[in-house]
Nucleic acid binder design. Structure first.
Lengths: 351, 351
DNA sequence: GATGAAAATTTGAACGATCAAATCGCCATG
DNA sequence: CATGGCGATTTGATCGTTCAAATTTTCATC
């Protein structure tokens, strides 16, 4: 009975080798290898015999030996950074990344370089030792110096996020259209009856933040609303952002709603707006990232959700294309986020 | 000039091998190896010459070859699961894990088995192929069947969380004293003048949740307060938990404060309690996990913070001990969480 | 200067897989 | 019946490193 049962019970694991399988099946090493990697070359009965031996011995090809011979690790490197803010975007992305990588026979290897100055050295080390075949970058900054450096070194990589500050068609990336997302937020707020819609997000210079702000401004103009004076860009921490939102609300003609660059900003906007005697927020707020906190707030908050799963799939696809030689390093994929609308959506609001 | 400069610029990377370094330094392969792995065996001037050659060629030992020879991957496997709730505990843990592993020359390899039924097969595969040397489990359930299975298979592993439902001294683990944490929360609430302190957490059967509830009950008794009727255990989603909290608040002698099993429960308790005309919450709530949301709430919420960094360090230490033969698989480390007290802490609260 | 011990270095083999080339067996064809 | 061709299988070499054992060098001692 070939079986599901485990054979060695309780002992430390000493996996079978290809030679042991070959001996058990009465064939040579190479034939076993062919059964697994080029079944067409093997006669059907031989293949069956070999497969049975594989089952019986629980054989699985050794990864290190394969890697050595193939000069490839089948690992994707990902630098993990300390989480900040309420968003769990990176969490979701990492999960999706592991899933997508697994589909292609790859694994995700995470690392956390202790001092920042050693970051480039850490990347270089992982590549030179053959620990990973390439990288996924999820924290691309404006004019990120890593990108040209990677390219110059011939290190394969793909960005989750556009290479802001560089020519987009020189690097591989998958990203979400932030301008479209914020425009959706504005459209939603307009449909609720709002005209004075402020923006709360990062100050000029983050790339993705600038795009989101542009999305807000363009959408406002499209609706014939005036964005002037309603830009509340500031640092992404609640204290600062709450202050910025309060300043806007103290204007002679204050905003009745906020479109925000992130859920952290959105939380700040809600705090600044306060609640009316019925416990309802005085300002309508739409966040970005759809973090768990958005749903758990009272009342729940609308937020723009990024298609993280698709993004991860594209990122992995682009990287594998590069690794298998069939892809160019200058390829971009743009995805559309989706507004998750929450709340009672009654337009009898401001005024 | 031995250098920081990179040498091959723009070309695909073809790292130097140990033989090339040996040739450049005029020594044999083994001497180069010794310089790196057993410097005491090499004459000082020879070592210097070899080191210079290493620098010049940018040599880094190939990981696959090392792994093959050493029969070890120096990788720690970690199954990543979809995030849920406001807590970013796992995020923080994963970051700390990668950091701790890196300190010991290891890396963290994450994977996400698609269907749950294949989970054990996925673990087995990673071990049999030598892709990882052991596992860290951060999602140990009550009577988790993986633990005895791993032990029986001789697969090294360490749990972040106690092996509830099994004999604790049969497995390796590091965990945080949940009872102590909730007791701290109760102490804090008592010091604020509260006596009627309810508990909101998971229903019987999670292990860690049961311990936290016990911590609340024991602390209440220690203070001479009566926990009876104030246990609001229910599923961990906001709708359900809000309902449970409301039922408690509707009692003839309602609680004035809540100690909670997680920040998600705590958010629900705050929602159920509502705010007074001044915008202040009607009930005092202490959460667990100190998620970003706790700090961002208005007013900020106290929460019990787990020493994730230390936990990760211990987890890695215990695993490496097992892998290096000097550790037994039945060792546990208990850590103390710390209450992060927030808010204006004015004791003039309850009726 | 011979002797031996200790230090320094080198050689050969092995880890487990796959690639490339060689060999074997079989059958159709002339 | 020799020949060629083709499918199936095997052999030898190799990926880059480290272990174990062998060898060479150094140096103190008598």
């Amino acid at each position: 009975m070939a079986g599901q049962e485990h054979m060695g019970r309780g002992q430390a694991i000493a996996p079978a080798t290809i030679s042991e399988v070959a001996a058990a099946a009465g064939v040579s090493r190479q034939t076993v290898s062919n059964v697994l990697n080029a079944p067409a070359r093997v006669a059907p009965e031989t293949a069956a015999r070999v497969r049975q031996a594989i089952e019986q011995l629980g054989y699985r090809p050794n990864r290190a030996a394969r890697n050595l011979r193939a000069r490839a690790s089948r690992n994707i490197g990902f630098k993990i950074h300390s989480p900040a803010g309420v968003s769990n975007l990176l969490d979701r992305f990492l999960h999706a990344l592991a899933e997508a990588a697994g589909g292609g026979g790859y694994h995700v290897l995470i690392f956390a370089p202790a001092p920042v100055e050693e970051e480039l050295a850490a990347y270089e080390d992982l590549i030179r030792t053959g620990t990973v075949d390439g990288f996924v970058l999820a924290d691309v900054a404006l004019r990120d110096p890593r990108l040209p450096w990677f390219a110059q070194q011939g290190i394969p990589f793909v960005c989750f996020g556009r290479p802001w500050g560089h020519e987009h068609d020189k690097f591989a990336w998958a990203d979400v259209d932030g301008a479209y997302g914020v425009a959706q937020a504005v459209d939603h707020l307009v449909s609720l009856g709002h005209r004075r819609i402020a923006y709360l997000g990062w100050p000029e210079g983050t790339g993705f933040g600038d795009e989101r702000r542009t999305g807000w401004r363009d959408a406002m103009r499209r609706h014939g609303a005036m964005p002037e004076g309603l830009d509340g860009s500031c640092q992404e921490d609640v204290a600062t952002a709450t202050g910025a939102a309060r300043r806007l609300l103290a204007l002679p003609d204050p905003p009745t709603a906020f479109a925000c660059g992130s859920d952290t900003f959105a939380v700040a906007a809600r705090l600044a707006g306060g609640v009316n005697p019925a416990g309802q927020p005085n300002v309508e707020v739409v966040g970005f990232d759809d973090s768990p906190a958005a749903m758990l707030m009272s009342p729940p908050m609308s937020s723009v959700r990024q298609p993280v799963q698709e993004a991860a799939q594209h990122v992995v696809g682009l990287l594998l294309n590069q690794l298998h030689g069939s892809g160019i390093p200058g390829e971009g994929v743009m995805l559309r986020p989706q507004l998750v609308s929450r709340g009672l959506s009654r337009p009898d609001h401001g005024g």
